[in-house]
Amino acid sequence: MGITLRKGVFSRLPSLKGVASTPDQRAELMLGALAVGSLVLIGFMIAFVMGEAWPSFANNGFFKWFGWGGNTDQQLEGIFNSPGDPASYVYEIRTFPLLYGTILITGGAVIIATVLSVLSAVFIVEFAPEALRRALEPIVKLLAAVPSVIYGLIGVLVIVPFFDQVFITEGAKESVQYVIQLTGSNITVAVFILTIMIAPIMIAIVVNALNSVPDSWSQGAIALGVNRWRAMWTVVVRAARPAIVAAAVLATARALGEAIMLSMVSGSVSFSPNPLDGLIFFLEPARPYAPAIVENSEGLTIPPFGQTIYAFAAVLLFSAGMLSFAGWFIRQKLRKYTLTPT
């Protein structure tokens, strides 16, 4: 009590006296201000993006904006070339192919990565020999930090040509030639690379979670005559479900926002891959929202075009928010039995 700073900025702020006289109180005030500041900043950002995006939604109608009809790429071009007079701005766009592409690629990658990461984490924690485990854990953490553009490069230089030469036959090209051109950039490559990109961070989170499950629980299961494999699944992985959900949410957020890599390998055509095409479905291109933003960033200064791109961003922002909320909600549900007496 009564300690005052002789030097520095705080000693010159008389209004802080009384309110923040101890170092603890000053620290609390500082951190509180920083936290509130960042919240306000995020609030402004959301408000700004939503405000900018509003004309695009309003002129199309909210549901029609997400609907289908026409060619999204041509519609974007129409907006880009709209007349300079604000009264005759063109806004018409139907973004269903982008929405569908986002769901398809993100969803596919997250589902595959979740299964993959839980299996790998179980292996690393419970079944891998000590030496292997010690090697794997840092490698996984290293992989989680690789910049996505590197994955994109490998994708565009190695995997896309490989698909083009091996899987895309003349017959396949001809069968859809009036609808779409198959180039080797397609949803399978996109999902594949995105999975590789998001799986390491998920593995790292799930490994941590499995390690932090008390050993006494699996011991208890084993003492009941359950083998290690079953004990792992029915008790340890079960107890780690909140962390698995958290990992999936984080990975989904990362996948949703992944722009550069997807722009390099997903084909960059606003096309809705059609499951009715059979196996060729997997060779068809798509274009999620995030790469659509990057690829169209050169036209942002044209007001209606900029607003349309902001609308894409607003969708991503909103989905990320919803995702966090859904993740929080599911974790609360799952934690019901893990809570110790309060």
Partner: peptide, 16 residues
């Protein structure tokens, strides 16, 4: 292990 049950020092009910 089904025929020879065991109870541990620390109670370890499963989180269920």
């Amino acid at each position: 292990r089904r025929k020879v049950g065991m109870v541990f020092q620390q109670p370890n009910p499963f989180p269920m």
